[in-house]
């Protein structure tokens, strides 16, 4: 028996919108720790890891570890039927081939339940080793989204370079080149508007902009984004989800062959 009640149901709606472009089908894993997902895109270039900790739910009952295969576009279709202020409850019985999403309006005058068919998904689970990153950049998520969108109108790839001067996003295409430098800026009114760079050593890596743009679908989840870079390692683009957890996107770099 599984029953997870999320008062801020809009978070789950935003999570689905953030990952459904990247991943079609995925297993949601439910355990005492929380509600989680790990999935790769179909090209095995990017990986998404989601965690919603059990403490973030108003009610969290998960009698035994359960893995539920879902088509994310179908799940998003159902969650779009929930109001932004609705409380969402996810329910499943042991051994059932369906999951139920229950939506309650804030004043309890409308209660809806949507039952969705589960699917068997043979997914690989990758071990993500702890890494010391050469550079960690924290910046406003909207600013990062703007940069990725702007650069993708010029080129297909972005070179992200971190030096003590700041973080530089560069691209080149048929019509020309573009460079955007963001300097560290801690003297802002609100901490979420700051750009903070922690650099152990300079790093420069090349990534496909198509994936970066896809990651920015998570922008509504968090005011800030953290970009962690190390030479020859996948970049980690992390959006924290309120007090509940995170979505982390890993993207393999383009490398010399």
């Amino acid at each position: 028996m599984l029953e997870l009640r999320l008062v801020q149901g809009s978070l789950l709606k935003k999570v689905l919108e953030a990952i459904r472009e990247l991943v079609n089908d995925a297993n949601f894993d439910c355990s005492a720790t929380g509600f989680s997902l790990q999935a790769m895109d179909s090209s095995h270039v990017a990986l998404v890891a989601l965690l919603l900790r059990s403490e973030g739910f108003e009610h969290y009952r998960c009698d035994r570890n359960l893995s539920m295969g879902m088509n994310l576009n179908n799940m998003a279709k159902m969650l779009r039927c929930a109001g932004n202020d609705d409380i969402i409850t996810i329910k499943a019985d042991d051994g059932s081939d369906t999951v139920t999403f229950m939506f309650e309006s804030p004043n309890q005058d409308k209660i809806a339940d949507f039952e969705m068919k589960l699917m068997d998904i043979d997914s690989e689970h990758l071990g993500i080793p702890d890494a010391e990153y050469h550079a960690i950049v924290r910046m406003p998520s909207a600013e990062f989204a703007r940069i990725c969108k702007d650069l993708s109108s010029i080129g297909d790839t972005v070179v992200i370079s971190v030096t003590k001067e700041g973080v530089k996003f560069s691209t080149a295409g048929d019509i020309g080149t573009a460079n955007i430098v963001c300097r560290q800026n801690k003297t802002v009114d609100k901490p979420e508007e700051a750009t903070v760079i922690e650099m152990q050593e300079p790093v420069s890596l090349t990534f496909a902009l198509r994936y970066m743009n896809s990651f920015t679908k998570a922008t509504p989840l968090s005011e800030t984004v953290t970009i962690s870079l190390s030479s020859e390692l996948p970049v980690v683009v992390e959006y924290k989800i309120a007090d509940m957890g995170y979505i982390r996107f890993y993207l393999a770099p383009k490398i010399e062959e």
């Binding site: 095995h44 990758l126 071990g127 993500i128 496909a208 390692l233 996948p234 890993y250 393999a252 062959e257």
Partner: peptide, 14 residues
């Protein structure tokens, strides 16, 4: 020219 690496190059099956 650079080639796109796949994620399994860095993270192994667990």
């Amino acid at each position: 020219l650079k080639a796109q690496a796949r994620i399994e190059r860095f993270f192994c099956n667990s």
